[in-house]
């Protein structure tokens, strides 16, 4: 029977069906978890942009996010509300870094000026170099800085330079990552500022 030409076809068909069935079963089992992971990754970044928020575990992050954050499509950002008052804006930013995409969130207080924090949920920069933008040392610099209402809301400058109110020091040696990060953050912050202004003029 093995020599018959149709045997190969039937054999391949059965084998494919068997393995596919197993895979579909397995992926159904994990599907929910995978989707939750993806969602949580972003929610975690949003919550991280407001370091004052206290949480213990992932479940709490999800609860805080669904209760206190609401997307405002018009300005392309998430509004952070607590105790019935607007606490701030979570503005997502993304763009191409040195090697691959950089995606993150910047938290801005209700005065639309003061930065509450910055976090990243996707970056593949050079480990030990560009990737250090994700370390506390770099991210903490942003807290308390104010954005400027100009073409360059924030600045990432070499570490020898003295800082203006809207500037932070770059990671030493990671020039390319810093240049791009500055550009992509400014682009999305600028877009958010414009959208907010537009909304205020014509509510």
């Amino acid at each position: 029977m093995r020599d018959k030409p149709y045997f190969a076809v039937i054999y391949m068909f059965i084998l494919t069906a068997f393995f596919s069935a197993l895979l579909i079963g397995f992926s159904r089992m994990t599907r929910q978890r995978v989707q939750m992971n993806e969602q949580l990754n972003f929610e975690w970044a949003v919550v991280q942009a407001f370091p004052k928020i206290q949480y213990q575990n992932n479940q709490q992050i999800h609860q805080i996010f669904t209760k206190q954050f609401a997307k405002d499509e018009q300005i392309g950002a998430y509004l952070y509300q607590k105790d019935g008052r607007l606490q701030g804006y979570a503005v997502p930013f993304s763009g191409k870094g040195f090697w691959d995409k950089i995606e993150g969130v910047i938290g801005i207080a209700a005065d639309k000026k003061t930065i509450t924090g910055v976090s990243f949920y996707e970056q593949k920069e050079t480990p030990g170099l560009g990737a250090r933008i994700d370390e506390d040392e770099f991210r903490r610099q942003f807290i308390g800085k104010t954005i400027e209402d100009g073409p360059k809301p924030i600045g990432i400058v070499p570490s020898a330079q003295t800082l203006a109110e809207n500037q932070v020091h770059a990671v030493t040696g990671a020039t390319q990552t810093s240049i791009r990060l500055e550009a992509l953050m400014n682009q999305d912050i600028r877009a958010w500022l414009d959208a907010v202004e537009k909304k205020e003029v014509a509510p």
Partner: peptide, 20 residues
């Protein structure tokens, strides 16, 4: 190829679900 792909997909799914 089918057999190898089968195991690779399983590894990929496990990582996605438990070590995102």
């Amino acid at each position: 190829t089918l057999i190898i792909a089968f195991y690779v997909i399983i590894v990929d799914l496990i990582l996605k679900a438990y070590w995102p």
